[in-house]
């Protein structure tokens, strides 16, 4: 088992954001990305940030959880922040030994940190409040025009679903194998690269064998339950846009429009 919540994990809470149609959530998140990327106007970015924060507050998940799940990424961001502050030339504000901190450096990296934070937050809201299954359904719907081009969208969605279903199972399997071989003295952490690769055999060979045998059985289980590639399937849940969805979509579009207009002005 993993010992902390990773980004991308669904957390049930039953908030208004959870109840939104997954399609509108996916579209909104997709719209936030260009809004964040094109704006060079602090006002525009503040607008997008406030909107994102509002959704975070409405999501029914404690801000601490967001903080924690993004912590590993924050560390990376901070490192790049510090590097950029140090190595961007410009008006020097402060000199500590050979390190010069410039006004431009501070501004540029602060700006970058702000934008990436907003993007990460938006992505987290989406994955915390939407089950992977809903996400694939939404994706399948968005991509459905591609069916005309003979792209098997339904089968692709099924593949993603199965992958999602089996990630935890395979993760447990891999962990178990690792522990089992380690308790027989397998050493995966030392030696040259070549040695390390060959030392992975006791882990990789059974892992692949087990994955294949699982896949075989899974294929059988799907066949038993009347699955046929290419046959038309129905769905248990039909996605429906409600008032809240229209509201969220229009607000989001309005914000994007405002940001674009601000840039054009």
């Amino acid at each position: 088992m993993m010992n902390n919540i990773s980004m991308g994990q669904y957390l049930p809470a039953g908030s208004p954001v959870h109840r939104l149609d997954p399609r509108s959530k996916l579209i909104c998140t997709a719209l936030v990305v260009p809004a964040v990327l094109i704006t060079f106007n602090p006002l525009g970015l503040t607008l997008v940030s406030l909107w994102t924060l509002l959704v975070v507050l409405l999501s029914g998940i404690k801000p601490g959880v967001y903080w924690q799940s993004l912590k590993p990424l924050w560390v990376l961001l901070l490192i790049s922040f510090v590097l950029q502050v140090f190595f961007t030339p410009g008006n020097v504000l402060l000199t500590v030994g050979f390190i010069k901190i410039s006004r431009e450096g501070l501004l540029l990296s602060g700006w970058l940190l702000w934008r990436i934070s907003v993007l990460l937050l938006a992505a987290s809201v989406l994955t915390f409040t939407t089950t992977p299954l809903q996400l694939t359904m939404a994706l399948e719907w968005l991509l459905s025009p591609l069916r005309r081009l003979r792209i098997p969208v339904q089968e692709l969605a099924m593949m993603i679903n199965l992958a999602l279903r089996f990630v935890p199972t395979l993760f447990d399997e891999a962990r178990m194998l690792l522990l089992a071989q380690r308790s027989r003295g397998a050493d995966f952490n030392s030696g040259s690269i070549k040695e390390r690769v060959s030392r992975l055999t006791p882990f990789m060979v059974p892992l692949l064998t087990n994955i294949f045998s699982r896949a075989e059985e899974l294929a059988l289980a799907m066949e038993i339950r009347c699955y046929q590639v290419g046959a038309a399937r129905s769905r248990l849940h039909v996605m429906r846009f409600r008032v809240a969805d229209y509201a969220a979509l229009s607000l989001n579009t309005a914000i994007l429009a405002a940001v674009i207009t601000a840039k054009a002005l």
Partner: peptide, 17 residues
């Protein structure tokens, strides 16, 4: 033999097919 990431979706798999 479980194909979906949610219980009810798994049961629905057959009838959907």
């Amino acid at each position: 033999q479980l194909v979906a990431a949610v219980v009810e979706e798994d049961v629905a798999f057959g009838p959907e097919n």
